[in-house]
Nucleic acid binder design. Structure first.
Length: 216
DNA sequence: GACCAGGCACATC
DNA sequence: GATGTGCATGGT
């Protein structure tokens, strides 16, 4: 199986089509983390509104968010949906950050990759995708993020079976690509890009640029 | 008005 | 261990 070749071809095609994505859309590592939690099963546009509210109120820093009362937080992030549960999840992360690293992202991100990943997964509300988004896009660790688009696109083009689990798919990418943060960063961003533009819920997309690779 | 979005935890079988 | 369900807003 020429998986390695295929994955690289997909990357090149997407890169030529869309160019550099320069992800994550967020100004600071902390904003990336907040965005990663808020975007769970939610359209990014709604997340931007929520983040805008936090920014406007001066709450978008570890200390500020740590001390912000949950009900107030929930109200501010209302546009991102699931606001009660997400307020709780953000608070869980803040408790973790302050308890384990004294509120310092630098300290947190000086932890070794697999250890930090495991610890993040122990925080209630942080699952595999959120943890990996935080690690890759806020912490610059070389880890590949899998999301709904990744599964949908590969499955539409019959490269994977539908029920594949997160870590199997993550292994597929990571074992067949060079372990570079920049590559993982761009690749996932490009997948989201082509996903948003072409591979949405409408069953088939004739215009999908990836059709070129897989004899339609 | 239905359907969906860059998940996750928890209940139930 | 697999499958189902609640969480909620805003855009198409």
């Amino acid at each position: 199986m020429a998986v390695k070749k295929t994955l690289l071809e997909i990357y090149k095609l997407l890169y030529n089509q869309f160019g550099k994505q320069r992800w994550w859309p967020g100004e600071t590592p902390f904003e990336v983390i907040v965005g990663a939690i808020l975007t769970q099963n939610t359209a990014w546009g709604n997340v931007e509104k929520a983040i805008g509210n936090l920014k406007k109120g001066g709450h978008l820093s570890p200390k500020a968010l740590y001390t912000l009362p949950s009900p107030k937080l929930a109200k501010l992030i209302r546009p991102s949906g699931y606001f009660n549960i997400k307020a709780k999840r953000l608070k869980e992360f803040m408790k973790f950050l302050f308890k384990e690293y004294n509120g310092s992202l630098d300290k947190m991100f000086s932890t070794e990759l697999s250890e930090l990943r495991q610890r993040l997964l122990e925080v209630k509300g942080i699952g595999p995708e959120t943890a990996d988004s935080i690690l890759l896009y806020a912490g610059n660790y070389p880890i590949f993020v899998i999301d709904a688009y990744t599964k949908r696109i590969l499955s539409r083009h019959k490269l994977i079976t539908d029920g594949i689990d997160y870590h199997s798919l993550q292994r597929l990418f990571m074992e067949n690509l060079s372990q570079h943060t920049d590559l993982f960063n761009e690749y996932h961003a490009l997948i989201v890009r082509v996903g948003k533009d072409f591979c949405n819920t409408k069953p088939h997309c004739e215009e999908c640029p990836l059709n070129k690779l897989f004899n339609k």
